[in-house]
Computed example of a mutant assay.
Amino acid sequence: MELVIAGSLLLLTVILLAIKKPWHNPARRAEGLLLLKGLRQLLEHLQQHRGLSTGYLGGDHSLKLKVDQTQAAIRADLSNLDASSLACHDRWEAFTDHWSRLERSALSLPVNDNIKQHNQLIANMLQLIEDIAAQYNLLFVTHPGDGVGTLWRELLYTTEWLGQARALGTGIAAAGQSTGVERIRLGFLCERIQALSSIAHTDLKGHNQSGLRSLQEAGQTVSMLLSVIETEFLSAAAPKLAATAYFEQATKAISAQFAVVDEMLTGLQDRV
């Protein structure tokens, strides 16, 4: 009986050490952090591609050069990522397959299909980012309540809602008109942006004093963009703002959110 108990205790110790070990492996966490930085860059370029290609399909063919440049940036992002570390993820395989097809067809799709395809692609990418963070034990590196967990949830999803609003608005501005359905959709996106950005910014402000400057800019740019959307798109069926001007305004708001994300990633790096 004693041997059985001793054997059980030994087995339990081995299991606990096996579980505990990855959480104390700085090299592994550093590898994961490098992947997250690469995926974060890729995410930003994918969101840009959605907005620019939607503007092109809406009728502003001057955006073609920027579409080509963004596709080149995405190819560079993919080349810089360690594909061998991502190969075990079904989401990565699904992403690469989807993107290879969308890259070729984006500028020949109907506007709504183009947005839908990008939205699905990016939703998969956001899930992959969370998977990588969990796999490399980067969700719990810091103390509970310090705001880092928000990076993987509200803050990155805020960039995505902003990105969808940028794409939809750019397409409307390029076409010079909007439908009631498009305005309803844009209004919904504004509600999500307002809610998620408020949660994320409040949480981070309470726990990350070094981020106050970037947080302040992030909040201001979101407020400015929401005001532009209300004036140009929600209050009128025919916007007067040029597609390129709106795209740039929305990009400022998105870039400000990513600046906070980068600051949080730097904070993670310091603790790895």
Rank of each mutant, 00 (worst) to 15 (best):
M1A: 14
A6Q: 12
L9T: 01
L12I: 04
L12C: 01
L16C: 06
L16Y: 03
N25P: 00
A27F: 05
A27G: 03
R28N: 07
R28K: 12
E31L: 12
L33M: 13
G38Q: 07
G51K: 03
S62A: 15
L63V: 11
V67T: 10
S84G: 00
L86R: 08
H89F: 15
F95L: 15
S100Y: 02
S100R: 10
L102G: 02
P110Y: 08
N112F: 13
D113P: 03
N119R: 12
M125C: 11
Q127G: 13
L138P: 04
V141R: 11
V148D: 05
W161M: 12
L162R: 04
G163P: 09
Q164T: 01
A165Y: 05
G169W: 00
S178G: 08
R183L: 04
S197W: 05
G211C: 11
R213M: 14
L215G: 15
E217L: 15
A218T: 07
I229Y: 00
I229Q: 02
E230C: 02
T231N: 08
E232Q: 15
S235K: 02
A238W: 01
T244L: 14
F247R: 08
E248K: 14
A250Y: 06
A253P: 07
I254H: 03
F258W: 09
D262A: 11
V272I: 14
